[in-house]
Amino acid sequence: MTERETALETQGVTMRFGGLTALHDFSIRVHRGSIVGLIGPNGAGKTTCFNVMTGFYRPTEGKVLFEGRDLTAKGPHEVCREGIARTFQNIRLFSNETVLQNVMIGCHVRTPLNWWETPLPFGVGAKKEKEIREKAYHLLEEVELAHLADECAASLPYGAQRRLEIARALATEPRFLLLDEPAAGMNPQESQKLMAFIRHIRERFNLTVMFIEHDMKVVMGVCEYIWVLDYGVLIAEGAPKEIQADPRVIEAYLGEEAVADA
């Protein structure tokens, strides 16, 4: 890999819950503008890792740095303000709101509408509101959901909900996007489209993308670099080709016999 600027860096992050160590001495460096993957068997600590990076957990030890700034002590909303957005493994849309409103809520962090501006007749509030609405609508066009703008978010089909969640994350104007199992529950055609979509938004919004995924086709197809977690420990990292050949990774995924058989 060529030398590029670092977007996000973790230094010796360890996360313990009581006696359980969910993440142990986790250190990675993500280059700006890359698409990278975090893989590992179930319960390996991938989502914990995302939760640490986005401020939901404060690591027991270690540091998270984003573009050189220390995020370790920051809460989720402050991390988002710094420019990191995420989606969730089990889609978490605002289910009572419309598709457009969901994206508008994401716009709040960059264009906050203050409470006292709303009741004032003719003026500031209305102008801001219009600006937010237009921005949200453009984002929906970007993810091809504009025709569903006024539908209730919960009524969308699964794939569309995934895309809406990404659009909502993009509304916060991130420079770094974390996707937690974006291809879960998708058929091969859909995941094919998703890969193209991830590449597209990377270019379009100038992003660094990191995602957790179980679908190896997607991971190997789109990632430039991969980290492998097992039982909270980083067991391998490298380009897709190297990871596919790494015996430790095969062992972690398939068990020891598989390695012996091979």
Binding site: F56, C80, F88, I105, A169
Partner: peptide
Amino acid sequence: TAARAMGI
């Protein structure tokens, strides 16, 4: 939780 992740 989702609201916090949206920077709110």
